[in-house]
Structures are given as structure tokens and as C-alpha cells.
Nucleic acid binder design. Structure first.
Lengths: 245, 245
DNA sequence: TAGACAATAATTGTATACGATTAGAGATTG
DNA sequence: CAATCTCTAATCGTATACAATTATTGTCTA
């Protein structure tokens, strides 16, 4: 057997390392748990993250929870308001544009480098990623599928072996997850992984230029798949939810 | 009178805001103080930042100092080692390359946007920056001059009004300061601000393409001004310093 | 009944105390 | 004399307690 579908390393803590420059410990654990929960859309933007509550859930004191929340704030996934507490971030429409513009600038370059640097093992890893994503879709776990779709991009960043740019990409991908939760046009359609397959092909052929081009249009596609019209601050209040009952 | 040489806003906390997603308070103060101290090369790479010590200096408890150090760690200026403490970061040669590669990718784009977006007031601000830098050089305060030279780049990032990319640039500039402290070839020569003047000219003419080009070669120049040969980990030990005494 | 005000409850900001880990000096031994 | 070991002092990791701020509920009045 060829170790098919083994969990891509990016599901484990390993794949997230680098975003949080923290010594290993409980603080990092909590960061990672909250991070994946947000990536899988189990924590919606705007949700309050009370220190006591989080601490009780994970069996840690407020000290360590606070450090975790501040770390998440630095990567843009949590916003902390003075004397009010921490909330899952709600990226503005403007920030959404900026995030995808930044991705369109950085990720094609990353893809180019990755195409050159990718080993056969790396390619297997990427393929495992795609397979795992399909599997999640088949199982109906859209949250996980979306999360894996994003993690595919960070996997490429890791392969490029450019730590500085890779960390930027990681942060951008995480925020993209929140942006998608807020502004994605068609919640039903799976993130079309057609581009991911095309990227795989370019990687297999070690075609750096193709990889760069495909990645660029892929990001632009994603950007245009968002509904970023100015509308009146749907503040997620009860008004919308209970309007017609 | 024409308010000449008024302090550019980037000397104040305002200019650094955005890098540290912290609610205003003592934690932010300490972040900013340490940050400017590092930018002005008054804190050398590798220096230990003891929690007690820093706390005593700024009259704060360890709780708040810890938060500040962790924030600085997130922006890459401080490295925290488990059970050992916090130190001013010592970027590796590899990281030095990566930082300047990232700058060469992002900053030209930023310069292009800034050239389009710059108001007359922005241009005056930039000019004030250059003047202040000259002044610092004349006064022999090389630390401040170098710091201002970096802040000139963040000022451009602010003008571009692209918050996401601007924050990335800020982080890269901060790390560049450490890299320059470690690897700059000619410690005597002032950071040749010729390119800065050329940039100013492009901005005044609102020539986006020129600004982009100038910025790109400026960054490449800076990169090549570093001595990044692999040498045996000058660990700053006493052996080198006291070898022939 | 609607609006303003006041008291209470809940949550965060900060300080401090205690346990755990590490670094370094000094003693011990081959 | 050199290397190793042990012990002590200093520093970090974490928990908890208290102070300050905020949000909410309940009450009063026009």
C-alpha cells in the first residue's frame, strides 16, 4: 500500500507553526484550537471570546488565554477592544479587498518558487491535500473542506521554503477564511478546486511560469467570487433573524 | 512661515500604529519605546530583555511587560525562548535575504500606489522626513538617521493607504533595521539617500511607473549593500573581542 | 408607555505570589 | 589540572486576587 490519504501535515500543529511565534505550551495549543475552529467556520466572525469562558473550556487560566487571544489578534483573526474583550474578527469590505490584492501580489511569486523547489514528496503531500478536501466534501463537512482548501495554499507556501513570505501568506489565508464566511456569494458551491488541479499539473511539470500564472488568476477568481458591495453593516443583530416570524 | 522641519508624524506613536494590534495603554507604550530603541540601534541584536528589568525601567509589572514583549515577538523584532526569556532578535543571513526579497516584491507596488494617491500634504510630509534625516546626520546621530531612513519607507506605505500591505512593510522595515545592524558593510557611510530624492521627484510628478522602478532598484541596492557571506556564527562571544589583548 | 437614571452583575486590566526551569559558581574527583 | 557534578540564585510560567471599567437590569418620572 502506498500510504494513501494519510493526513497532510498541515492538519496538525506543524502546518500552522510559524504564524504564532510562541514557545510550545498550552498557549500555543489554545491558539491552534481556536485557529482551526475559525478556519473551519465553527466560530463565526463577531463571536465574543470571553477569557473566562475560553479558559474554562480548555482548562487554562486567564493568563494563558489572554496570551493566546493576543497572539490571534496579531495574525488578524481576533480583534481586541479595550475593556470590552476579544471577538472573532469581522474584516471590513475594504480589508477584504486589500487581503485579496495582497494575495494576488504575493502568492503567484510563491507558486513560482514552489514549482521550482517542489520535491516528489511535496507533490504527494499536495495531492493528499486535494484528496482530503474531496473526501470532506463527500462527507458533507463543508467547514473542513473550506479549511483544507485554504491550507492547500499554505502548503504551497511551505514548499516554496521562503519563511518570510510564507508567514505572510498564512496570515492572509486565515483572514480570507473570515472574509469568505462573511462575503462569499454562493454558500452552497464548493470552492471550485479546478484551479488546484491545474496548479498540481504545473507543479508536476515543474513549470514555474505556468504555476505563477495559474495562481494569479486563481486568486483573482476568488476575489471576484466575493460579494463586496457596500451594504448597510449587517451587524448580525436579531433584526434580520427574527424579522418575519 | 511654512512650518519647516516640523517633526514628521512617523516619529510619534501615530506612525507606528498598526503594527501592534493592542488597545492603547501602557503595554503599547512599552512596545513603542522598545521599538524605537531598536530602530535607532540603541538596543543591539541579541541583547537580553529581562522582564523584571524592563518592568522596573518603565515602572510596570511583569504582566504588561510580557504582553509587550510578545507583541514585539510577533512583529519579528524580539525572539522569545522558552524558560530563557526575551532577546532582541538576531535575524539569520537567510532571513536577511528573505526580508529584502519580500521588500523587493512589495515595496515597488506600494510606491506605485503611493505615487498615485499622494496629496500635496503627503509630499510635504515626505520632504520633512528627508530634511529631518539630513539634520540627524549633521548632528552626528547616526542611530536616528538610520531610523528615519527606514521610517521614510513606512511613510510611503502609509500614503499608499493600503493597510494590509503597509503593515507588512512596517514589519519588514523593522527587521531590516536589525539586519543592517548586523550585516551592513560600511558602518560609516550614511544610508545613501540619493534614491529617496529620486523617489520624491517621481512622487511630485505623480509618475507611478517611475516610482515603482526607482523603489525596486533602491531595495535591490540596499540588499546588495549587506555583507551576507556565510561566516562562522560570530556569536558575539569574547573570543573575537579579546583575542589579541 | 417611553425615556432617563441608578444600582448591580459581569468582564477585563493589572499586580503579586508561588512553583518550575535554567544558568552559573563552587566543590569534588579522576 | 581538567572535567563533572551539585547546589544556589535568578528568571520565567502560571494561577489567583483585587481594582477599574463596562453592560445590563430594574426603577422612577414625565
Amino acid at each position: 500500500m502506498t500510504q494513501p490519504l494519510r493526513d497532510p501535515k498541515h492538519l496538525s500543529a506543524e502546518g500552522l507553526h510559524g504564524i504564532f511565534p510562541l514557545p510550545e505550551g498550552r498557549t500555543l495549543d489554545i491558539c491552534l484550537k481556536l485557529h482551526t475552529a475559525i478556519l473551519e467556520h465553527r466560530l463565526a466572525p463577531g463571536v465574543k471570546l470571553s477569557e473566562d469562558e475560553v479558559g474554562e473550556i480548555y482548562g487554562a487560566s486567564r493568563t494563558v488565554v489572554r496570551a493566546a487571544l493576543q497572539a490571534l489578534a496579531h495574525s488578524g483573526m481576533v480583534s481586541i477592544e479595550k475593556n470590552r474583550g476579544a471577538f472573532v474578527a469581522r474584516p471590513s469590505i475594504r480589508e477584504a479587498h486589500e487581503v485579496f490584492e495582497a494575495r494576488a501580489l504575493i502568492e503567484p511569486r510563491i507558486a513560482r518558487m514552489a514549482a521550482t523547489a517542489a520535491s516528489d514528496a511535496d507533490l504527494r503531500e499536495l495531492q493528499a491535500h486535494i484528496d482530503a478536501e474531496h473526501e470532506a466534501v463527500a462527507a458533507g463537512d463543508m467547514g473542513k473542506a473550506l479549511s483544507l482548501s485554504g491550507l492547500f495554499h499554505t502548503a504551497i507556501a511551505d514548499i516554496s521554503d521562503h519563511h518570510v513570505l510564507a508567514n505572510m501568506v498564512r496570515s492572509l489565508i486565515s483572514r480570507s477564511s473570515l472574509i469568505i464566511a462573511l462575503y462569499w456569494k454562493r454558500p452552497d458551491t464548493a470552492c471550485e478546486s479546478h484551479s488546484h488541479h491545474a496548479l498540481m499539473k504545473a507543479f508536476e511539470e515543474r513549470d514555474a511560469t505556468a504555476a505563477e500564472e495559474i495562481q494569479k488568476s486563481h486568486i483573482i477568481d476568488l476575489h471576484s467570487g466575493l460579494d463586496l458591495k457596500e451594504r448597510q453593516e449587517q451587524d448580525g443583530s436579531l433584526k434580520d433573524i427574527l424579522a418575519d416570524t
